[in-house]
Design a protein around this nucleic acid. Structure first.
Lengths: 157, 157
DNA sequence: TATTGTTATACTCTATAACTATA
DNA sequence: TATAGTTATAGAGTATAACAATA
């Protein structure tokens, strides 16, 4: 049996977040979680892809011949963290990994034919996800939001 | 020796993010990373706290007597994931964990005297971090940004 | 039977360090 | 010596399942 004892969270009582709602990071975090959840419901079921993997595919598609090191730099992670990702995409037949002719240490990444087809479908799902998630905002409000975010993170690049 | 071979990322060449810049999640992610890095440079060195731990302390401080289960619910994580966090805060003397009188299964969390002092200092550092990170925006722009984010994540709550 | 806190366990993400094969 | 890719390893963070104490 449940007993009301004054402590929030034990029952259905409202609880306070203290000063957190005055911090931008708090709202960023909540929005990020909501976007990921929405993506997981709308894109992942059909194409079995995460936001991070989709991002990797986009960068490879937009920069054919990019190296694993270049991909790591683009995504802002260590080169060692890229290996598992590239392996996954490779094993799924989405990308091709071939040694460079100039420098045999270096590898060149590019989408396969199947990868291009799959990515096209993912892009359609992602755009639908984006449109649905942002439907509460007008196009202008979304543009304002994006530009404000850009101004914040560009100052520290 | 480094050889230019046309692939971006291998050298200092610009690379493209494809359609990613048209996705809100891309900009949210980059802003989130920038906020965390700024926090790590301005708050963590003096008070050895992360954004997540600071959030936990805020919720405990604002809801004295909250249970671990209530904290888990507030932070949107599983109750089993809270245990390590509460242990850390307890071991550092920031919070006190005592059994409830009404229900001896239940624990009641609250800040210690030291915890209150430490949190006050953290809050000062966090507010300075917030002000510096958002200094590129006017107060009005920041308010607009916050409200747009709220409208996005509230629709899915 | 159901709930609270906890443990055991596993999986993801990411970093550091060291290895290999080239250069 | 230096670099590209990789491996081994470790530490967060989070989830599921199961357990003991209590209700």
């Amino acid at each position: 049996m449940m007993v009301e004892d004054g402590a929030p969270g034990t029952s259905g009582k409202r609880m306070s977040f203290g000063m957190l709602p005055r911090l931008l990071g708090f709202h960023l975090r909540r929005t990020q979680v909501a976007v990921f959840r929405h993506f997981a419901h709308t894109v992942t079921p059909e194409m079995d892809i995460t936001p991070a993997l989709f991002g990797m595919l986009q960068v490879i598609a937009a920069n054919p011949g990019i190296t694993p090191g270049g991909l790591a730099e683009a995504m802002g992670v260590d080169k060692s963290a890229i290996v598992k990702v590239v392996n996954q995409l490779d094993e799924r037949g989405l990308i091709l990994r071939k040694p460079s002719e100039h420098d045999r240490r270096s590898h060149s990444l590019a989408l396969t034919e199947y990868g291009r087809t799959a990515l096209a479908r993912m892009e359609a799902l992602v755009l639908a996800h984006e449109e649905d998630f942002t439907k509460a905002l007008t196009a202008e409000e979304l543009a304002v939001l994006t530009r404000l975010l850009e101004r914040l993170y560009r100052q520290t690049e």
